[in-house]
């Protein structure tokens, strides 16, 4: 019993720091907050079972992200209906004459609009953004999690970023760069 306690504490210490990453992946995979929370719990239990079987990773973040992604696909995907995805590749954009896109974007971020926009992206782009930009994984790690070549992740990542910028271009008022 004592050994088990040590083992679960060791597991929790190693993995609890990944909770936000796992939660954000779950939020991209299922539409309801409750389902996302269920998915997080299932992920941790599956990860703990692997941990108990001495299947321990070199690096925890990509390992637990992979478990979450696989579980999410098998458990929840059929139940969830993603909102309509929009192809944005061919949209024309006239860039404003500004050199600081971040500063413009910060002007008035509407969080709900941001989440709606994330849901409108194709799933693979949204997941690439979640793993790299939200979760802080490298593109090589994201490639491993998504079982795709790194070049594919780089492309998905860019298209996702581009699409997000285009989707929200009308929601973010421009402002002078000081």
């Amino acid at each position: 019993m004592r050994g088990e306690h040590v083992r679960d504490e060791e597991f929790l210490q190693a993995t609890m720091g990944c909770m936000d990453l796992v939660y954000n992946i779950a939020r991209r995979m299922v539409t309801s907050v409750e389902d996302a929370q269920d998915l997080v719990q299932e992920t941790y239990l599956a990860a703990f079972r692997a941990w108990q079987d001495d299947r321990r990773p070199d690096k925890v973040e990509p390992w637990i992200a992979t478990i979450c992604l696989n579980l999410g696909r098998s458990l929840f995907r059929r139940r969830s209906r993603r909102p309509h995805e929009v192809p944005l590749e061919d949209q024309l954009l006239v860039l404003p004459d500004r050199a600081d896109p971040e500063r413009e974007a910060i002007a008035s971020l509407d969080r709900d609009a941001l989440h709606r926009a994330m849901w409108r992206l194709p799933e693979e782009q949204s997941m690439a953004l979640t793993l790299v930009d939200l979760g802080g994984l490298s593109t090589a790690e994201a490639a491993s999690v998504m079982s795709t070549p790194r070049g594919t992740v780089l492309s998905r990542l860019h298209r996702g970023r581009r699409a997000l910028a285009l989707l929200l271009k009308d929601d973010i008022p421009e402002r002078e760069v000081t």
Binding site: L95, E102, L134, G160
Partner: peptide, 17 residues
């Protein structure tokens, strides 16, 4: 330009568990 803006937006979609 687009990628920087998109990355910035994506980072702001992060939620705390």
């Amino acid at each position: 330009w687009l990628a920087r803006r998109g990355r910035f937006l994506a980072e702001h979609a992060r939620e705390l568990a």
